[in-house]
Write a protein that binds this DNA or RNA. Structure first.
Lengths: 325, 325
DNA sequence: TTGTAGGCGTTATCAT
DNA sequence: ATGATAACGCCTACAA
């Protein structure tokens, strides 16, 4: 295992000089050259543990996500990675499984490992970030709003719900159901609010039996769709407010015979196994949300950022059908 | 920021004693109690950077994957996580995007961060593990065989290809095509070999025009299926040798009118948007592969493991249709 | 510009 | 069983 002192010995300089070369401080060209030669010859790379102990922060950032199996979040992760790598940071992905304790666990590790910063899509209620912000750690929240005074990158969820519903109205549908997430989930509620607002604005009722609170996963979408299709007065269109319930809804619908309900989905379906030309998609581009969040975090780590800000991640026009991926 | 010396001061002992309590060494009960009280009162958690500098290894393990957006690998990651957490280790997920250089980058970081071990599904040719094994780091390879003398958890890929093909033969199909990955990809080749072996064993030809080397992603499956369906003599059954090309194949097939080819897929389709009762699935259970790999890694980290071994991850009987997820 | 030396927070060795 | 202390590898005053 080669250390900085080995490099120093080989180059005939002090460890301080080696360190300076490695960190682009002022060193005379000839010595710098000698050091670099020694570095390549030995294949030396600095011990990051020692470096981060000394500097009081590492070159790692934590990306804390509630569900790593959801393509929305993996795509977001790709965006974060792209920015981080060009900034010389490495991304550490942590999966909380929507569990507040696991989330605490990972946030604590990020802290104890002196990580440079954290990007988190929070599970559960807010307030958990106090310890991190108190320690002046760089923190960016994505996808789900919190009350804390930190940078946040969010969708305008009510607007998403409204626009997706409007697209269904524009197609002439009048009895439009909404499948959303659990009552305690703010994004799910906001998107459902948008659905309600759009219907109301169009002078239509938004009866309770057309709003289904599912579990926001594939099986939730299946169950909700089954229930809606079996109703006395089935809807002629359905809005699924996230990608997973959209998958479930589509799956049930594909088995249906006779007149099919029109489906609208807020989200993307990269692994659709059927052509979905007849489905409205309001694509969210989570990758760009990741890019935005990472850029924000990097500037905060570098101390270039001002007061905490909330960025509303723009989304695109509603599309009919999905281009693959 | 509270340090071990703060705890020591509050408990009226030396830092050495605090450290001993934290690491379950022998300490008199009363002093231990005092220390624990001080720890909770201050909310102290050890600085992991300092700890790992001293101990020469951290409590992190790296999971280096070629494509974090592929559900196969996210599911594998979940398995690794489950074992790691109960062993007191935290998982760091790294995405190489099938790029050898990026892989090198992350493996180097794992080394420089003194991580306790690495689980890697290798991108590109073998030999890249030399540095890690030389340094006696704990390493487990998953999914893709390498020549290095390290623990490996693999499928018997040729057997997978054979069994999946046999299932199609059992259904009476005779003209069976195979859509697999690029020529340089060993797992893709091995599964195709299995396809060929099954056909040969059944006394059937395995002509070149029935074997398509696709790019092993969704669009590859689409392109391959398009080509096969447009052929002068289209197959009456198609084997897709991984989940992503399976998705693409299914997508094209779902648009097809008239007599549909029977599809067999090696892999799972957690996000299928259609009912796929008429598709053969040979499910791989990547989560269990992750469990196996992580158990192996943990025992190696603890020094309990013997010589490097290759574990063949069992798979299940071919299923007709998929139960969701 | 370069070198010397102290310290980041923890654990392990060596006395007691 | 407990405490003082050195060491892990690096960076950065400070001195020269």
């Amino acid at each position: 295992m080669t250390r900085i002192k080995d490099v120093a010995a080989l180059a005939g300089v002090s460890t301080a000089t080696v360190s300076r070369v490695l960190n682009d401080k002022t060193v005379s060209p000839d010595l710098a050259a000698a050091v670099r030669r020694a570095v390549t010859e030995l294949g030396y790379t600095p011990n990051r543990t020692a470096r981060s102990l000394r500097r009081q922060h590492s070159e790692l950032i934590a990306l804390v996500l509630p569900d790593i199996e959801n393509p929305f979040f993996t795509s977001l992760a790709r965006g974060v990675e792209d920015v981080a790598r060009t900034a010389g940071l490495s991304v550490v992905l942590c999966n909380t499984d929507e569990d507040v304790e696991t989330q605490e666990h990972y946030l604590r590790i990020a802290d104890d490992e002196n990580m440079a910063g954290v990007i988190v899509a929070p599970a559960g209620p807010s307030g958990f970030l106090a310890r991190l912000t108190e320690r002046h750690r760089a923190v960016v929240v994505v996808d789900r709003a919190v009350a804390d005074d930190v940078d946040q990158v969010l969708f305008d969820n009510e607007d998403l719900g409204r626009r997706a519903t409007q697209a269904l109205l524009d197609r002439g549908h009048r009895r439009i159901a909404c499948v959303t997430g659990p009552r305690e989930t703010p994004t799910a509620e906001a998107r459902a609010d948008g659905w309600r607002a759009a219907l109301t604005a169009a002078g239509l009722p938004a009866p309770d039996d057309l709003l289904v609170h599912a579990n926001y996963r594939v099986d939730g979408g299946e169950a909700a769709m089954t229930r809606l299709l079996a109703a006395a007065e089935p809807p002629d269109a359905v809005l699924a407010t996230n990608n997973l319930v959209g998958v479930g809804a589509l799956r049930m619908l594909s088995a249906e015979r006779g007149p099919r309900a029109q489906l609208g989905i807020i989200g993307d379906l990269p692994f659709a196994t059927s052509h979905i030309d007849d489905t409205f998609l309001l694509r969210l581009h989570p990758r760009e949300m990741g890019l935005t969040a990472a850029r924000l975090l990097v500037s905060r780590i570098r101390g270039e950022a001002g007061p905490a800000q909330r960025v509303v991640q723009p989304s695109r026009p509603v599309l009919l059908g999905a281009s693959p991926s």
